[in-house]
Structures are given as structure tokens and as C-alpha cells.
Design a protein around this nucleic acid. Structure first.
Lengths: 205, 205
DNA sequence: TGGCATTTACATTCATGTATGTATGCGTGT
DNA sequence: ACACGCATACATACATGAATGTAAATGCCA
């Protein structure tokens, strides 16, 4: 029964993307066919090929519905929301990214990106993450540099080292949590670890 | 020209595994066929099917040639090599794991495991890493608990939090480094970050 | 009625597994 | 020592299934 209204067509597009999230998450990207996705959404492959050029196109459309955590951090830092200083800016941006990640769709999509896919056509998530990571590291580094210049950092920690410590802790927490989201709360346990790190490297008054 | 000596047969087996590392690393696991691997080793699929049951079997044989970093850490900690205390045991075990990871084969295989594969038949690397991670976390936690009991940890840091901090930093460093091994030295930069973390949480005399 | 959304049908490609072919090393008997 | 026979270490050929992309058919809203 083809040809619904324009709004219904848009709804099936979203349903297809929802189905893609489900099946990708369960079976991995390369092992799921477009047939699987279509059937899971109650459609046939024809619907998929009408809305998307191919599997890679669908995959990227799925990615476009969420924001990368590192991109979120970059944006938050450059926006400097409610900053009481560069260290607090970094800390709040990190916690904000954790909150965003715990939203169901974000969690699903990023789990797929991290643990359920290797390559998709000629564009690979590793390169994408690589650029994001180095961009983010640079923004964080500038922030720590500013904190250092303002005398907010303890002497033992150089801005570069602080950057690596924070960045790796964020990456490790996200990576571990996405592998088993039920094993701990990213916002609570992860947030506490981040808080402790900032507590340790902040110069005490 | 079939039937080489037993030693030569073993050599082709190793050559096939070497080829698998190369091609998996370049194209990802799911996108490489056994034909690709065989051709890259100068053989045909017949050789592959002689030495291995199928792709999954070959993949696991490839994994068996290296040791998991987290397993290395677990072994080092339980062996307590040259320990001057629980904190130093943890620190040295971590640095040792970093050293092991920088060996070419280890680097290649773990890059494949982290960034070039999603599922292989019915056994998936995520589950494998998951069990290793929780085992390792438990061993590390006991070590930090002992350090706490001996008064080696500063008061602000509970053993559980220290465990999460160390574990996530290790995971993040390894993850980031494997994504771009040339961008920094795991042993040097990563080691410095780890050293700094232990410096920060150790009670000063 | 015409163009939009979707299904159905079809051709092609590709990886896999298996079956078969084949030449060689190696043990065995004498 | 030497020929014989077999198991070994591969290569080749083939059958199968699965996924992809596309073209034609179909129904429905406007």
C-alpha cells in the first residue's frame, strides 16, 4: 500500500533509521543487510532505496541525528557557558557531554560507532574520530594553558599533561561505558572521577 | 608445487597469519575475503582452508599470537614483580603493558581488534574485552584497597574512584594511541600521564 | 490524472564451502 | 639403498547463497 502523505513518508524515513539503530546495535553494521533493516521497520528494501542512496548514505543519515560527544565538548568550551574559570568550563563541558551521551538515541548510535562497525564504504569512523579527537585536544589544551597562565593549575602538572590526562580519561570512560552501559552510571561514577581529577590538579587556595 | 616439509608448512601458516594482519589492518576484517589474504601471502584459498577451519578460526589464531594488554596487567599484578608497594606494582604493570603494546605485531593486532573489526562469526571482541576489563578492574581495585589500608593513598581518593580513574586512563590512552600510533609515544607521553596520576594520588611523606 | 511512495522482480556480483585434483615428502619393508 | 604407498600441503573448479542495485509494476493522495 504505497504513497502515504508527505508527513507519513517522513515518518517511514525516521522509522527506517530507528530500525537501522536497532539492527546495527544487535548484529553489527557489516552483518546487517538492508533487507534486515527494512523488514524490522515493516517495509521492503524498496523503501530504503527510495529514501537513501545506499547503506553508507543511510548510515550517515543515522549519524546526523546525534551529536558527537567530543564535538559537544568543543562547542561548550568555545561557547564558555556559565564559566567561573577555564577549569570549570572544562569540567562542566565534560559532564554535559556525559549527560548527552546517556540519552537513549545517543547511547545507541555511539555504541554502534564504537563497538559495532569498522568501515562503512570508503568513509571510516576512525578517521572521523581522529580529526575530532585532535580538534578537541587542541581546544582543551588552550583551556588548560589559560588556567596555567592564571595560576589555577598546580605546579607539578604542565598543560600538555593535563590535556592528555583529561582527554584519555574521557575517552576511556566513554569507551568502557558504551561497551556496557548498565555496569555503571556515566554521569555519576564517571562524573565523580572527572571531578576528582580536577580537584587533584587545581591549586588549593 | 605442493607438499613442502613440515617446517615449511608451518612457515606458510605464519605467512598467512602475517598476511591476515596486513589486510585486516588495511581493509577491515569484514571487508577482506579469504581470497585477499591468500593472494597477499602468495597462495590460494586452498592453503587457508588447509590450515584453518574458516575465517573465524584464522582470526582467533591471529589473536593467539599476542597477549591482551589488560591480561598482561593482571598477570603482572598477581606476579608482583619487583614491587616496592601496591601503587608501584600498579604503575609498573601499566608501563609494562604499554611497552608490550608498542611491539609491531601487538600494535597491529590490537588496532585490528579495536578499530578494524566488529563481529567475527558468533564470537565478538566486545564480550571478550568486557570480561577482561571487569577482571582487570577487580584486580586493580584490590591493589588500590591494599594501598589505602597501608595509608599510601591520599584521603580524598577512595579506592573505587582511583580504580576507575586509572582504568579509564589506560583504556583511553590505548584507544587513542592505537587509532594513531604515530601521533605520540604511548610509552613516553602515556607513561608520563600515568606517572603523574600516581604522583597526584600518593600520600606525600 | 499524474507524479510520488513503495513493492516486486530480475540481473549481477561476490564470498563461502566443498569437492576434487595433484605433486611431493616421508616412512616402511625388504 | 631403493622403490613403493600413503598422507600431506596445497591448487583448481564448482555449487550455493546472500546482498546489492536497478528497472518495471502498482496503488494512492492531491
Amino acid at each position: 500500500m504505497p504513497r502515504r502523505t508527505k508527513a507519513e513518508a517522513e515518518a517511514t524515513r525516521e522509522a527506517l533509521l530507528d530500525a537501522a539503530e536497532d539492527v546495527f546495535l544487535e548484529k553489527g553494521v557489516s552483518r546487517t543487510s538492508l533487507e534486515h533493516i527494512a523488514r524490522h521497520a515493516g517495509m521492503t528494501r524498496g523503501a530504503v532505496y527510495w529514501h537513501f542512496k545506499n547503506k553508507a548514505d543511510l548510515f550517515h543519515a543515522m549519524l546526523d541525528r546525534v551529536k558527537m560527544p567530543l564535538q559537544q565538548i568543543i562547542d561548550d568550551i568555545t561557547a564558555e557557558r556559565q564559566a567561573t574559570g577555564p577549569l570549570d568550563t572544562l569540567r562542566l563541558a565534560t559532564l554535559h557531554a556525559f549527560e548527552m551521551l546517556e540519552r537513549p538515541r545517543s547511547c545507541r548510535v555511539h555504541t554502534i560507532l564504537m563497538h559495532r562497525c569498522e568501515f562503512i564504504s570508503d568513509i571510516n569512523p576512525v578517521e572521523l574520530q581522529n580529526r575530532l579527537a585532535s580538534d578537541c585536544r587542541e581546544v582543551v589544551r588552550r583551556c588548560f594553558q589559560q588556567a596555567h597562565d592564571e595560576g589555577l593549575l598546580i605546579d607539578e602538572i604542565a598543560p600538555d599533561v593535563a590535556t592528555l590526562m583529561l582527554h584519555s580519561m574521557i575517552g576511556g570512560l566513554v569507551h568502557d561505558w558504551l561497551r556496557a552501559p548498565d555496569s555503571f552510571s556515566l554521569r555519576e561514577s564517571g562524573g565523580e572521577a572527572i571531578d576528582r581529577l580536577f580537584h587533584l590538579i587545581t591549586r588549593r587556595a
